[in-house]
Design a protein around this nucleic acid. Structure first.
Lengths: 356, 356
DNA sequence: TGATTTAGGTTACGCGCGTTACTCAATGGC
DNA sequence: GCCATTGAGTAACGCGCGTAACCTAAATCA
């Protein structure tokens, strides 16, 4: 194939793309001059006229900088990589949204790579390593590692070759900085809301008691009760499978165990899916929400919380904020600044709807 | 800052990264030889020994190719770009998942850029243009454009500089190829399922009648009925707002309008959110699902369909498949192959759960 | 025996751009 | 009238890599 000159405007498909050289020729200056005006160099001296001529040429030819070449020459890619199982299990997409918005503001690009690491020490570590490897080949300046649910993870060693920040998870090996939701404060604010509404007997539908979410939220609940001079009745804490069915069954247990007088007047469901099931159990018994029983959830899964009837009051996980904070932290790290803390806690705001 | 030699292994942070030159020196060969073995050139002749020496050097130094430099030299980036509002409105994330999985298989990288174009002719066209511009600066080989819900869109002109495929939307200007769900077939399979279960009087909770989803699904429903020798009673088609509340109200209308004898025995809700509301209306009246009234939805929004009680039988939108097909189509286009069709329809499979 | 092929490489160029060092004319100071 | 400075730009190198063209000694062929 003969080398084609690229001087023709918008011609056949797959043309060579106009370069700075083309712009330079068109403007009758050196390529260096073009580079200088395009990158707005302070100390370079280019007259207003030639500057204008160059800009015209840029417009006329439809010049578009080649990011790859720029990265090669300047030794900075302006890319961050984010490796996450969220692509495959989209529970916490808002992390990506938050990160991407922030990256966009910082004029960085976010490269998203999938990881299928279902649990801390998953079977297909392979894909994850490959993903990180690919990101490093793109010369990302930093790495974000995000999980769908708050937990400890083992990050492949290769990640440590560039600054790395964990989002919605923490380094089980305790080396990398992380950003996680403040579960405890969230649990606290939930129960405080119930107390404020006058509830004194509060049932709790718990998650798997070993996961950070359960530990933190429950601790927060206890704190809130303690401050009100109350104690959490162990009888009122029932474990549930983290699904609507699990919530239904747990709620049935609680509701059927007591007489109308002893029955708790409020239910703190440690996630929204379980709250969804609890709704059914409550309605089934002819009780009303929030009249007879108030319900408060956790997670703020829009599709559930905003569409249940009545709409569910719940505590939101700050996915978007965590994503943004992750990028900010990464920016600080790549700039060589010291990090603020090994683990940054992000608040979980209460979302008032109609179930309390 | 003095130029540092890069011969030292894994030293201080921010070191220069080992290049092919380093590998070449270490192996005592020319850089070209390294390039040849790394890219597995068929027609190049390198002895097994030197090949081995080179591979050893690669291992020893931890060499990692620089994707940017490679792209620059070879004039192909191996990247596709996908611009989508899904990042900000994550209803259809599975499109991204499907696309990314397929891209991964094809050894391509997917660059995801956000678009905030809420409707066909949105106000912040600006962000979208900027996003596409950024992608083109990265020299993506092709562009995917994905929407959260099936509709016509106007794609910025700049997109036409590289092969472009639309996913879950179509080009209102009729130029670009697209991949959309087969709404009609979906509506058909839903009603067929109800007919098969013995239902003859079927109520329909409709969406905004102008959108492609409503048009197609309703047409499909009519087809299915026609084949069974039935006609859709216009009285039984009630419009609803596309939310749980909308579904609730529409269902109330239908249920309260008729006596027990005339009442439809099944409800086809044109999306799962409305089905969620319909559930409430039905239960509220002491009726059971599917015993008294069968319900079938559309969209397969996991969080709803899989967690409603009873679990919702629904028709799934083939997001993942559309994403994958988008990448495949793009691959064909960039390879210069003719496209199969301007608009590819992807089937919507019925998901049997427990509400019919 | 001389000509040709082949294995096993190497030299050199260019991809598009950032950047440092340099040139060259015009100006200013004294 | 001579040197120093400044304004306005340019030449040239290198970023890390793909690749066409070339080279050399040994093997093969007529």
């Amino acid at each position: 194939m003969a080398k084609t000159t690229t001087s023709n405007p918008a011609g056949a498909a797959r043309q060579r793309g106009v370069t700075m050289n083309d712009v330079a020729k068109h403007a009758g200056v050196s390529r260096t001059a073009v580079s200088f005006v395009l990158s707005n160099r302070e100390n370079a001296s280019i007259s207003e006229e030639t500057r204008a001529r160059i800009n015209e040429a840029v417009q006329a030819l439809g010049y578009r900088p080649n990011a790859g070449a720029r990265a090669l020459a300047s030794q900075r890619s302006d890319w961050y990589g984010i490796v996450t199982e969220i692509v495959t299990a989209p529970f916490a997409v808002d992390i990506i949204k938050g990160a991407q918005d922030q990256a966009w503001l910082d004029r960085k690009f976010l490269l998203i790579a999938p990881s299928d690491q279902a649990d801390a020490v998953g079977p297909n570590q392979g894909l994850e390593d490959a993903a990180i490897e690919k990101l490093l080949e793109q010369r990302v300046e930093g790495l974000l590692y995000a999980a769908t649910y708050h937990r400890g993870v083992h990050v492949p060693d290769s990640a440590s070759e560039v600054p790395t920040v964990l989002i919605n998870c923490f380094d089980a090996d305790g080396r990398l900085p992380s950003i996680v939701p403040d579960e405890r404060a969230g649990g606290r604010v939930a129960v405080e809301r119930l107390l404020q509404a006058g509830h004194r007997r509060i049932g709790v539908i718990n998650l798997d008691p070993d996961i950070p979410a359960a530990v933190g939220r429950l601790a927060g609940a206890r704190e809130a009760l303690a401050e009100a001079g109350l104690k959490l009745d162990p009888q009122l804490v029932v474990p549930g499978h983290a699904t609507a069915d699990g919530g239904y069954e747990a709620a049935c247990q609680i509701l059927d165990r007591y007489t109308e007088k002893d029955r708790p007047t409020a239910l703190f469901c440690l996630n929204d899916r379980m709250a969804m099931g609890a709704y059914d159990a409550i309605k089934e018994r002819g009780l009303t929400i929030p009249g007879d029983i108030a319900v408060i959830g956790f997670d703020n899964q829009e599709l559930i919380a905003a569409y249940l009837r009545p709409k569910l009051t719940t505590v939101a996980l700050p996915f978007e904020k965590m994503g943004a904070l992750g990028v900010q932290t990464l920016a600080a790290l790549t700039a060589g600044q010291p990090i603020i803390a090994d683990q940054q806690l992000v608040g979980c705001p209460l979302l008032e709807r109609s179930s309390v």
